Simulated scan of single mutants.
Amino acid sequence: MIPTSLARRKFLADGSLLLLAAGCAASNSACDLLAADAPRPLVRAGIVTDLHYADKPAAGSRHYRETLDKLAEAATYYEKEKPDLMIELGDLVDAATSIDEEKKWLARIYRELAALPGEKHCVLGNHCVTTLTKAEFLEGVEQKQPHYAFDRGGVHFVVLDACYRADGEAYGRDNFKWNDANIPASEVAWLKEDLAEAKGPVVVLAHQRLDVKNDHGVKNAEEVRAVLEGSGKVLAVFQGHSHKNDLREIGGIHYATMVAMVEGSGATSSGYSLVEVYGDGAIRITGSRQQKSYDWPAKSSGQ
């Protein structure tokens, strides 16, 4: 039997994936060696967005009732992958005609989300607070704050809330226009202080987009991006709201807009993903259905 250390050096010297495949076919030892050498992510997070669940007929391309079946399919995937976190990037529920009905819809969809593996984090979306207040929505998803930060596996996560009008008034009870999204000065100040104290790489979670100037963008996004870039710690921003895959890099930060689950009819018209963050700053996104996959290598120290 070849000592493990020698086998490892031989494999690294050969550098051949074909030889590795042949070794795996012949013996489990080569596969075990590969597993030992493969870097392990610091944290693994499932991400879904824009579920817009509602017990009402479809409107245009949005098939509200089908969200339950789409989420059930995603649940099967996440039960296998066992992510550390489950993140919902906003618009978990669509607007109802009454507060009581909205609370029932929210309870129904959150029951399904809560059953998924990993701790849960919900970003506030504009549809979440069209009928409800922020306090009512947060109570429904067992969450205390609309914006906050937390650490898992050496990664610092920041949850932002852009559901404010330009005059600083919080969204709630249909008192806003969907394209007037802002992050108030107090939250920007909190963000700057939080990032200054953050240890390790940072991932930001948002609903409205921070990388565009159109109706789907946060009005003071440039100000917020300056804070993110100034910290020198932010690897990526994951966001929803515009329902389509999009990816931009601004100031060395990846801005990934994730595809909506509600769009289209049938199982193939869905999207969900698994995000893995590595110690060297690399991030891998494995997308399912309509969600695109990405593989972002670590940045060199000179970048």
Score class of each variant (00 low, 15 high):
Ser16Ala: 06
Ser293Cys: 14
His63Thr: 01
Asp211Gly: 08
Tyr164Trp: 07
His207Arg: 03
Glu73Cys: 09
His216Val: 05
Val227Glu: 12
Gly251Pro: 05
Glu197Cys: 07
Ala72Pro: 05
Ala58Phe: 02
Met1Ala: 09
Arg62Asp: 03
Ala45Val: 05
Pro201Glu: 00
Pro297Thr: 01
His52Trp: 13
Leu51Trp: 03
Gly266Met: 00
Gly230Phe: 14
Asp194Asn: 10
Leu42Lys: 06
Tyr110Trp: 15
Phe11Met: 14
Ala221Phe: 11
Leu274Lys: 04
Phe137Gly: 05
Ala181Trp: 02
Phe150Ile: 09
Ser301Cys: 12
Glu88Cys: 12
His52Thr: 04
Lys80Leu: 07
Asp100Val: 02
Lys80Val: 07
Leu68Lys: 13
Tyr148Asp: 11
Ala267Pro: 04
Arg248Gly: 04
Thr4Gln: 11
Pro83Gly: 08
Lys144Arg: 10
Ala185Gln: 11
Ala196Asp: 12
Gln291Gly: 10
Leu274Met: 14
Asp180Val: 02
Val155Ser: 03
Leu228Lys: 02
Val234Cys: 12
Val43Leu: 07
Pro39Ala: 06
Leu89Trp: 14
Val123Cys: 06
Val158Cys: 14
Gly281Ser: 00
Gly140Phe: 09
Ala149Lys: 09
Val277Cys: 05
Val203Ile: 14
Val203Asp: 13
Ile183Val: 15
Glu229Ile: 10
Asp180Arg: 05
Leu210Glu: 04
Leu42Thr: 00
Lys292Asp: 15
Tyr148Trp: 11
Met261Asp: 00
Ala45Pro: 00
Leu20Met: 14
Ser293His: 10
Met1Trp: 08
Val202Asp: 01
Lys299Tyr: 06
Val277Ile: 14
Val155Tyr: 06
Val227Pro: 05
Val155His: 06
Leu138Ser: 14
Lys213His: 11
Val277Asp: 02
Val262Glu: 01
Leu85Thr: 10
Cys122Phe: 04
Leu68Arg: 15
Asp100Gln: 12
Trp296Pro: 05
Glu101Leu: 10
Val262Lys: 02
Arg8Met: 11
Ile2His: 07
Trp296Phe: 15
Tyr110Phe: 13
Glu66Ser: 07
Trp178Ala: 08
Val237Gln: 08
Ala22Lys: 12
Pro201Gly: 00
His147Gly: 06
Arg165Phe: 00
Ala58Lys: 12
Thr97Ile: 14
Pro184Ile: 04
Ile285Phe: 07
Ser186Pro: 01
Leu42Val: 00
Glu187Lys: 09
Gly15Met: 12
Val277Glu: 02
Phe238Cys: 11
Val234Phe: 07
Tyr164Val: 02
His241Cys: 04
Leu106Thr: 02
Glu112Gly: 08
Leu205Tyr: 10
Lys233Ile: 05
Ala198Glu: 03
Trp178Pro: 03
Ser269Arg: 10
